[in-house]
């Protein structure tokens, strides 16, 4: 890497007025300043404000809750075992998977209900619903439009209660559900949609 004339650094560090530089060195300074200017300006406007405040409105989980969350989330666990034990384990798993299980329809807990999300997004490549139940992340509850009529929907089981949510179209456009009927302020002058999920027992 070629070293620059120290006077170039002095000018860029504000230790030397640019007029003190010969023209060929001033051109180098201008080149660096132009590069910095391009990096400063060449970005599309973006905001994370809605995401941040939504996350802050959720109480921070307690240590016990975090442990419980870890236990109930999916993790890759590697177990080292002798080949003979791995064969035995494979046999047991095969028996469990291959034996037919009659009448095992998914059961809903007493405090759970079914939520249906529907939105009209013609031309969308993907639509997700996000809320505290997805940790405001996309990819957890994707909506589908199997007949390509622009109506996207998803049915999920959620804990009974009130849930805030938003649609995320094409992974980047956050859209309030115009059909929600109930809304709550996100604290920044915008709104999240509200959904009330009733327990199935009722």
């Amino acid at each position: 890497m070629s070293k620059l004339d120290p006077r170039i650094h002095e000018v860029l560090d504000g230790d030397l007025p640019p007029e003190r530089l010969p023209p060929e060195l001033r051109a180098v300074v201008l080149r660096l300043e132009r590069a910095a200017g391009l990096l400063r300006a060449g970005l599309a406007p973006a905001s994370v404000a809605g995401r941040v405040l939504a996350a802050l409105h959720r109480p921070e989980p307690s240590r016990g809750r975090r442990v419980l969350q870890w236990l109930t989330e999916r993790h890759v666990i590697t177990i080292a075992m002798r080949p003979v034990w791995s064969l035995a384990l494979a046999a047991v798993l095969a028996a469990v998977v291959l034996v037919p299980d009659h009448g095992s329809a998914p059961l809903l807990g007493a405090q759970e209900g079914i939520a249906r999300f529907v939105g009209h997004f013609p031309g969308a490549r993907s639509v997700d619903v996000v809320g505290p139940f997805t940790d405001w992340h996309t990819g957890v509850v994707p909506l589908r439009d199997d007949d390509n009529d622009g109506v996207w929907s998803a049915v999920v089981v959620l804990p009974a209660g009130t849930h805030e949510y938003m649609f995320v179209v094409d992974g980047e456009r956050w859209v309030v559900d115009p059909l929600a009927g109930r809304y709550v302020s996100d604290g920044f002058g915008r709104q999240n949609a509200l959904l009330i999920v009733r327990p199935v027992g009722r």
Binding site: K3, H9, D13, V28, L32
Partner: peptide, 14 residues
């Protein structure tokens, strides 16, 4: 930090 910025300028120009 000054040295790092100087090296960064040189590397960027290169």
């Amino acid at each position: 930090l000054k040295m790092r910025v100087h090296r960064a300028r040189e590397a960027l120009l290169e």
